Every structure is written in structure tokens, then in C-alpha cells.
Amino acid sequence: MPEGSKTGDGKKSDEDWRRALSPEQYAVCRCGGTEAPFSGEYWNTKTKGTYHCAACGVPLFSSDTKYDSGSGWPSFWAPFSEDAVAEKRDTSHGMIRTEILCAKCESHLGHVFPDGPPPTGLRYCTNSASLKLVPSGD
């Protein structure tokens, strides 16, 4: 997908996204970039709460489903709700993978792999730059 071509909910232009997001968030969320492993804000976070889309604020993952996958990126075994995350076939970089996107604004989150823990067996491998943690009150 060409740089900045995602329009998501159709309400924001590319320039609006550039203004709303940090350069790193824009590169990841709108251009499909990836942060380096073990470098993102949330890869090793143990704080309880809900991880929201950094671009549009929709809840994407709960800390209750976060686990240490050893990959260097925040990993979850399930999304916050059945309709929070969309999937798309990704054949870039000579691989066949499943890209995960925010279902509301189509921001790139990362990829899902079939090597996660029970009960789903899935690993939603996400970029910290695409997330915003809202800590729970307890």
C-alpha cells in the first residue's frame, strides 16, 4: 500500500493524520511500519488496563490477554472484542502473514500468528506506537 494511502474511516485526510499522530505513530499506523523489537513503550508493560487504538481511541486489547511472547512487541492472545480488530492478507517482504488493523480507522497494528498460548492459540503481535494504554482504576 502506498505511503499515507489509508484513509480509514473516510473522515480524515492524510494531512489530518499527519497532524494528529506523532511521526512514529504515523509511520506505523498509516504506512504499515514496524518499530524495532524491544524498543516500544509497551513491550514489557505489566500495567492493568485497556489498550486503545492510538489513532482513533477504540479499545483493541485488554491487559488480561497480554503475555510475554519473547518477540519484543506487545503480544495478546485475543482482541478486546470480536469486532475490534480486522485482518488482511499480507504478502510483503517475501512472506505470507495476516496483518491486523483497527477495525474502525484501518490503522496498522501488527500481525497475528498461530503460535500463541491457550485458549486461542493466537499471538496478536502489535506495535506500541499503534496503542495507547488506559490504566484501570485498581
Score class of each variant (00 low, 15 high):
S62V: 15
V58D: 02
G10T: 10
V58Q: 11
S63D: 04
T45D: 14
K88M: 01
A78S: 06
T120P: 05
P37T: 14
A27Q: 10
A36C: 00
E82D: 13
A27T: 05
S71D: 05
E87M: 00
L101H: 06
V28C: 02
K66E: 10
T91I: 04
G33C: 04
P119L: 14
Q25W: 05
K48Y: 02
E99S: 06
E24A: 06
S81W: 00
R89V: 12
C102L: 09
H108A: 03
V85Y: 00
P37G: 13
S5A: 15
F113A: 11
I100A: 00
P2K: 15
K66Q: 10
E99D: 05
G116F: 08
A103K: 11
G121E: 08
F80I: 03
H93M: 15
H52Q: 09
T126F: 08
P114G: 12
C125E: 13
P74G: 06
V58L: 06
S39V: 05
D68K: 13
G121A: 11
Y26S: 02
E87C: 00
W77I: 08
A103D: 09
D64S: 12
W43R: 11
Q25T: 10
G116H: 09
V85Q: 01
K46V: 14
I96T: 12
A129W: 07
Q25S: 12
T34C: 08
K104A: 09
L131N: 06
C102I: 10
P2M: 14
S69I: 15
S136A: 13
T47L: 08
P135G: 11
E15W: 04
K104T: 14
T98P: 01
L131T: 07
F61D: 03
P117Y: 14
F38G: 06
W17K: 02
E3W: 05
R89E: 09
K66L: 11
T50M: 11
S92E: 00
P23I: 08
E15H: 03
P118W: 03
R89D: 05
P119W: 14
E35D: 02
H111D: 07
T91C: 00
